[in-house]
Design a protein around this nucleic acid. Structure first.
Lengths: 219, 219
DNA sequence: CGCTCCGTTGACGTAAGTCAAGAGATGTGG
DNA sequence: CCACATCTCTTGACTTACGTCAACGGAGCG
């Protein structure tokens, strides 16, 4: 996931720019998909609940990335909900325009296909992790992913700062806040992390990455 | 997943046709991705192990579908292993030719993007199921999926016949053969299924579908 | 007729979900 | 500035689904 991966020129009338605040919903799971959104700044979380049970956060989306393209592309209803996390600027690209881009802009469809292909790999890796690794392992994996993509404002002495509540973090790992709390504190006790109310400081980034690689090879 | 979804004409010299037998491997996880495969008949299972632990079967691929396109598209090594299940005919499309198709064949890239987008939805649904549903629920979901796509030769009185061992079925559900056995027999006791050594007869397809819908809405 | 491979079943251990209570934060109004 | 309400995180006790280990039994095959 690298920002500005899709340098498409939006020189059309129908693209609108939106300034969004926290908790604003771009679209709901089940809604008709009539636009694609592109993040200029800020962050959006994409989660799906499937009707029953707690929602699972499918992914966090940063600047330069697209949301909603999957449903628009296949002409299905949205399969997830997109919610703004912090102050965020987005472009709204209506479906017809998106389709026009696909047909006219040379190479756009290919780039998009490649983009989705990467998402698919990530999703399948997460599926594997979910299927056969413990909460602790999955937590380490997620922390390591956050370290790698610096998109979450690493501080000088404090690599990871997430604008997420613990309960949201839990929804990304696929567990409950209670279990996540225990796991994080166990990791903190072993000296790997330092915890504050809503920040996670990684004491030893290299050791974390090493552990992640040991559990999930080839990353 | 509908067969012949990608009616591309393979009238080139470099496309080769292969006749494969069971257990033959098209490619291994980690191999360099130098070709895409298209199934003409038979079945291929795609699984990934991620180095440690039991492999998880990501998906079963039937006639008319592609395998390996994800890695070829993004120019990464294969992220999964493709193994032939029954007697199977496949086309092998070398990477350069596939790329040429993407660039020259009008609309191919878009169709491919749409195809991957569907895979992505399925993968994310499975992720959700894996994260917050029991083995029993996931088993029902899988059986219901098999019922819907008839690609697995439904018999007149016996809707589901899989050319898979129980252990493979378990790898699709994301559990162990032992647990799957217990779950299936519990479902059989309740009258929903009849079991033989390597076949699963669905006594009441409608009830199964109903249960699946109740657990996993909007399918 | 044995060998091997799977599927089944049982006993057991454990990771993690659930329920419930308590402890800090943070914010609000008097 | 201080109660007071609210929200999140944390901790504990309990429950449970599921994985693991091990033994057994029926199929298929040489």
């Amino acid at each position: 996931l690298d920002p500005n991966d899709l340098p498409v020129s939006w020189g059309r009338g129908s693209v609108t720019s939106l300034q969004c605040g926290p908790e604003q919903i771009l679209f709901h799971e089940g809604d008709e998909a009539n636009a694609v959104y592109c993040l200029k700044s800020g962050m959006v979380k994409l989660y799906k609940s499937g009707g029953s049970g707690d929602p699972l956060i499918i992914r966090l989306v940063g600047p330069g990335h697209l949301v909603g393209y999957r449903a628009v592309l296949t002409d299905e209803p949205f399969a997830a909900t997109a919610e703004v996390v912090g102050p965020t600027q987005v472009c709204r690209i209506p479906k017809p325009l998106f389709w026009e881009l696909l047909e006219t802009s040379r190479g756009f469809a290919t780039r998009l296909a490649r983009y989705i292909a990467t998402e698919l790999r990530i999703s399948e890796e997460q599926l594997l992790a979910q299927a056969q690794h413990t909460v602790t392992d999955r937590t380490i994996r997620l922390l390591s992913l956050f370290l790698d993509e610096g998109s979450f404002e690493p501080r000088r002495d404090a690599p990871i700062h997430l604008p997420l509540l613990r309960s949201e973090f839990a929804k990304m790992v696929g567990t409950t806040p209670e279990t996540l709390s225990r796991v994080l504190h166990r990791l903190a006790d072993s000296g790997l992390l330092t915890l504050t109310r809503r920040e996670i400081f990684v004491r030893d980034p290299e050791q974390l990455r090493a552990r992640a690689r040991r559990i999930f090879p080839r990353k």
